[in-house]
Simulated scan of single mutants.
Amino acid sequence: MTIGPNSRRKSKYEPRQAPGAGGARTSAMIASLDAEGRETVSAPFGNALVELAKTREDIVGLSADLSKYTDMHVFANAYPDRFYQMGMAEQLLFSAAAGMAREGFTPFATTYAVFASRRAYDFIAMAIAEESLPVKIVCALPGLSTGYGPSHQATEDLAIMCGMPNLTVIDPCDATETAQATRAIADHPGPAYMRLLRGKVPDVLGEYGYQFELGKAKTIRDGSDVLFVSSGFMTMRVLDAAAALERDGVSCAVLHSPTIKPLDEETIAREAAKGGRLVVTAENHTIRGGLGDAVGAALMRRGVHVPFRSIALPDEFLDAGALPTLHDQYGLTVEKIAQNVKSWL
């Protein structure tokens, strides 16, 4: 369809509240991602969950000592009797969420992506996914969205979670999509894993009239030379790269694919087959087992043979440091994307 950082162990600190910010506030320790020159929305996940809970008494929230860093504190402040602080025990977090789901609730369980995907995988598999329970796992710091190094960088979470049967996997782009996807997974009857951009989140897709649909990829802009297939905040980056490349005479389309599993293979294959364009996947994830591998395999299965490249993180544990420096080092910046595309044409 075409349409127009912080360490885990800091719980003693309270969110700093800006004057006049109202009830929906987020921690000053949370830095915005790609927000310069863009409108931002504060805690889109937390606020969307609060709005849902006004009419759905089945919605409950849980966190593993990270409510302030997953925007779950917004829900906790609004509905303290429906929020459960499980402490630093991710296995307990997801087991409790599974038990609540069995009793008719729709639990939203939040933590960092590294702790859900690495530490609690077996508990999610056995307690939630095998029984296809409607637990919604919403995780901050996906991929390279923190400079704290391998202990907090969930660079392989999509590969891990996409390997789990029954689990829907979503990588939203911005504030608009985060709020829309929150509502969509609440209505989805099975379990879901959603990556989370937190704090003050840029609003990028709103100007395109975008509407999230579970399992659907959508063309954000059209172009004749390059087709970007992207997910997460990398859609922000490739949109900017497409604008920069256009000034150099390179016409780029952007196909945003927020649902990694189930992948919208039909739309991706149809768009990739148009006009002999270079297909470039772009993701905030290791090059192994994420969007790029899924798209490449889908094209091969469907007999679509086109020039193909991937922009992704390397298959290694990444460095710690300032996030803008790391993004430049690992090729996720607009400038590096544009340079790579021009070298591939």
Rank of each mutant, 00 (worst) to 15 (best):
L167I: 14
L167D: 10
T168R: 06
V169K: 03
V169P: 12
I170N: 07
I170Q: 00
D171A: 15
P172V: 10
P172F: 01
C173V: 13
D174R: 11
T176V: 12
T176I: 03
T178R: 00
A179R: 05
A179I: 04
T182G: 04
R183Q: 13
R183L: 03
A184V: 07
A184D: 03
A184P: 11
I185W: 07
A186Q: 03
A186N: 13
D187K: 14
D187T: 03
D187M: 02
H188I: 07
P189S: 13
G190R: 05
P191Y: 11
A192Y: 05
A192R: 06
Y193H: 11
Y193C: 02
Y193Q: 08
M194T: 08
M194S: 05
R195C: 15
L196Y: 07
L196P: 05
L197I: 14
R198L: 10
G199H: 00
G199V: 04
G199P: 06
K200W: 11
V201E: 05
V201M: 09
V201N: 09
P202T: 03
P202I: 07
D203K: 14
L205I: 12
E207K: 15
Y208P: 01
G209D: 04
F212C: 12
E213W: 00
G215D: 09
G215I: 01
K216Q: 14
K218G: 10
K218L: 11
K218V: 12
K218H: 07
T219G: 07
T219S: 13
I220M: 12
R221E: 10
D222T: 14
S224F: 02
S224T: 15
S224M: 01
D225W: 11
D225F: 11
V226W: 05
L227N: 06
F228S: 06
F228A: 10
F228H: 10
F228Y: 09
F228Q: 00
V229D: 02
V229F: 00
S230Q: 03
S231L: 10
G232N: 06
G232E: 00
F233C: 14
M234F: 03
M234R: 11
T235H: 12
M236C: 13
V238R: 01
A241F: 12
A242I: 08
A242M: 06
A242W: 01
A242N: 04
A242T: 06
A243R: 14
A244S: 14
A244P: 04
L245I: 01
R247H: 13
R247A: 15
R247W: 00
D248N: 14
G249A: 10
V250M: 09
S251I: 07
S251M: 00
C252M: 12
C252E: 09
V254M: 06
V254I: 03
L255I: 02
L255N: 00
H256A: 06
H256F: 14
P258K: 00
I260E: 00
I260V: 15
I260Y: 09
K261E: 07
P262N: 01
P262I: 10
D264L: 08
E265A: 15
E265W: 02
E266L: 08
E266G: 07
E266Q: 15
E266S: 13
E266Y: 07
T267C: 07
T267K: 03
I268L: 12
A269K: 01
E271M: 10
E271K: 04
E271G: 10
A272R: 07
A273W: 09
K274G: 12
G275C: 01
R277W: 09
V279H: 08
